[in-house]
Amino acid sequence: MAYRPEPDRDSRPWWERIARREFAVQECASCGTPRFPPRAFCPLCRTEGCRWREVAPVGTVESWIVNHQPFVPGRLDPYLVVMVRLEAVSGCLVYGNWRSERPPEHGERVVGTFTEVTEDLTVLDWAPAAAGGVHGHPSGRTSLQ
């Protein structure tokens, strides 16, 4: 395990949905523009007010790293972090650990997969679209292998 996320007053509802294995983004109540991460204001029309919209966690691979340095105390195994361009929100990059035995490919289509890290913490990781995903990964490990 790495660090536990620290939800704030903007993000707590989002994390609660993730815990229920639901991927949602905010949608502006005025102009309908989706946004992520969770924030009070729409950056386009600058109004408050939004609704949650459940979206398919799909995107494409923008980049990735394979970490070797123990930046997280106690985590010594090489692990892969992927940067994904999220389909549901224009211009949005999100991160996660990579859930496949093979490395990602540039531009490949990926799907989110929920990982139960501990009993009270679930995070969203990413896997090749062809492999399915979405319904969750049985392992509690967050590293590549």
């Binding site: 790495a2 996320p5 939800p7 340095q69 930046f71 650990n97 913490l121 967050t142």
Partner: peptide, 18 residues
């Protein structure tokens, strides 16, 4: 940080490598 740190993605060398 909450959208990165849980994945062990925490340090500048990682971010710039990305």
């Amino acid at each position: 940080v909450q959208y990165q740190a849980p994945y062990g993605y925490v340090a500048p060398p990682q971010q710039f490598a990305m």
